[in-house]
Simulated scan of single mutants.
Amino acid sequence: MKKLINAPDDVIEEALTGMELAHSDILKVHRNPNFITRSSKTRKGKVAVISGGGSGHEPLHGGFVGLGMLDAACPGAVFTSPTPDQMEEATKAVDGGAGVLHIVKNYSGDVMNFEMAADLCGEAGISVESVIIDDDVAVKDSLYTEGRRGVGCTVFAEKIAGAAAERGDDLKKTAEFCRRVNEVGRSMGMALTSCTVPSAGKPTFEIGADEIEMGVGIHGEPGRERMKQKTAHEYVQMMGEAVVSDIPYKNGDELIVLLNGMGGTPLMELYLLYNEFEQFCKAKGLKIVRRLVGNYITSLEMQGFSISAVKADEKLLALWDAPVHTAGLRWGI
């Protein structure tokens, strides 16, 4: 194993310290239990938005804490759900009196622990709404889920719900926008290689030098099919078809798109893949009106990519375009 670390047991603590030092104007790291909040307190009367999950997917989630997006994020161990006490303390820390929205990726540990935290916060008098993201079209059930996995559309949900809360929408309305993103958002990913969890010291899965995993999960979970290598054009055709046909999107629909790297894919290749997907959408009569290309929800150093798309409307576009200032996403400031 080759990693730029000191000791596997210290990776999360040291990374959180570095993150706070690098972005002290935006965020603050709290310890025992670990959670990340904005550097400033929640505005009184503002709905707070929280998410979280296992570390190793950076910039998700801590990199999206800041103006116009998340109020707090809970980092678990690598690829491991945060604990209920992390979520409870984060919720209490950012409650501004208008309630708190929990955005939860559909993994069994995340769902269970966020539910426990919501119950505890409810007993303390804090109103909590939870929205589960399950946008992955690759497989119905996986190693860690009942139903579809929550993946790339989590970024859309955090941005759009965060913008709604920032402008003053109430808890019910903010949650409705989040659910809307999940209803009209779909994703799929693939991997050329596995990744190595520091504490494990070996690849999460074995794959041949000439093989790829189609439909892989962000923790290295198996996908739809193990197959021989193909061209970028062929990958995009397969994944694009799976994504746009699921709802389905229709001729004339406008999309917000994320062409996402899994952590180890060069930006040059991601732009090449985005070009392929743009051409794919044009052939389908779909118009990409907003896009992100880069590493936004990763799987450590895995080589691969994912495609996420949300059907846009005037309301969702206004929230997407609203100002955001986080470590991982910023515009309009």
Score class of each variant (00 low, 15 high):
73 A>Y: 03
76 G>C: 01
113 N>D: 14
75 P>W: 13
93 A>H: 07
88 E>W: 12
83 T>E: 11
72 A>K: 07
70 L>A: 03
90 A>V: 09
113 N>W: 14
121 C>A: 13
65 V>H: 07
128 V>N: 09
112 M>K: 06
133 I>T: 05
75 P>T: 09
126 I>H: 14
70 L>C: 03
127 S>M: 12
71 D>K: 04
120 L>D: 10
85 D>E: 13
72 A>L: 06
93 A>N: 02
82 P>K: 11
103 I>T: 03
112 M>F: 13
115 E>F: 03
115 E>R: 13
103 I>K: 01
86 Q>W: 02
77 A>D: 10
109 G>H: 07
123 E>Q: 11
97 G>S: 13
68 G>Q: 13
93 A>L: 02
108 S>I: 08
115 E>M: 08
91 T>H: 02
130 S>C: 06
67 L>S: 10
125 G>S: 08
74 C>H: 07
74 C>P: 00
122 G>L: 09
78 V>A: 04
133 I>N: 05
113 N>V: 14
64 F>D: 07
127 S>P: 00
66 G>Y: 05
81 S>V: 14
95 D>P: 00
117 A>N: 06
98 A>G: 01
116 M>C: 09
87 M>G: 00
62 G>S: 12
109 G>T: 08
117 A>Q: 08
131 V>D: 09
106 N>I: 06
84 P>S: 14
114 F>M: 07
67 L>N: 10
92 K>P: 00
94 V>R: 10
130 S>E: 05
71 D>A: 06
119 D>P: 00
133 I>D: 02
66 G>W: 05
80 T>E: 12
84 P>I: 14
78 V>Q: 08
120 L>A: 15
73 A>P: 00
105 K>N: 04
99 G>A: 15
69 M>F: 08
98 A>K: 03
111 V>E: 04
103 I>G: 01
105 K>F: 02
112 M>H: 10
128 V>A: 04
87 M>T: 07
91 T>W: 04
92 K>Q: 11
109 G>P: 01
79 F>G: 00
73 A>H: 01
65 V>E: 03
61 H>W: 12
72 A>M: 07
73 A>I: 04
92 K>V: 13
64 F>Y: 15
131 V>E: 11
88 E>G: 07
75 P>H: 12
99 G>M: 14
131 V>M: 04
91 T>S: 14
80 T>A: 15
129 E>P: 00
108 S>H: 02
105 K>Y: 02
101 L>E: 06
104 V>I: 13
94 V>A: 08
61 H>G: 06
109 G>W: 05
126 I>T: 15
85 D>K: 12
85 D>I: 13
115 E>Y: 05
113 N>P: 04
118 A>F: 05
129 E>N: 02
